[in-house]
Computed example of a mutant assay.
Amino acid sequence: MADDSTMTIRATFATRAAADLAVEHLVQQHGISRPDIFIQSKGDENTAGSRPSGGDASHEGGAREDAALEGEIEVSVDIPASESAAVRRGLGDADAIRVSGG
């Protein structure tokens, strides 16, 4: 009998860009439905990550002062338990700082 239980995997990222890329990998490579994926700040503060990237960096090469760099971004995903190992690997490949659950 196959294990059809659902579990939640959480991964933290230093930038919003990395979190967004991880979501795209979950959808496109693992076939996970977007309503089963959640993105939020890891802490209580609103944040774009813990370091600048993409739109958070100025054209002069320094960090913008108006980006809320107050902490990490968390991606959580509800998946069948049987997909845990593959999803954990995929999140790690997408530059997750930490992956937990599963």
Rank of each mutant, 00 (worst) to 15 (best):
V75A: 02
S84C: 14
D95S: 14
S5H: 04
A81I: 03
E72V: 04
S5E: 07
I37K: 10
R16W: 04
R10F: 05
I9D: 04
H25S: 12
R88F: 00
V77L: 01
E60T: 12
E83T: 03
R89H: 11
E70V: 01
I32K: 07
Q40M: 09
H59L: 13
G102N: 03
A94Y: 03
T47L: 09
G90V: 01
G92K: 05
E83H: 11
G55I: 07
E83N: 09
I37E: 11
E60S: 15
D36H: 12
E45R: 13
D44T: 05
L21F: 04
G90Q: 06
G49Q: 05
M7K: 14
T8H: 03
S5L: 07
A85M: 04
D36V: 00
R34H: 08
Q29Y: 03
D93H: 06
L21N: 14
E60V: 11
G101A: 03
H25P: 04
F13R: 03
A19H: 03
E70K: 10
K42F: 07
A63D: 06
G61E: 05
T15F: 02
V77N: 04
G101V: 02
E60Y: 03
D36N: 10
L91M: 12
I79P: 05
S50Q: 11
R51D: 01
A85I: 02
I73N: 08
D44E: 09
D66G: 05
N46M: 05
A48Y: 12
L26P: 11
V87T: 11
L69R: 07
A57T: 14
R16L: 13
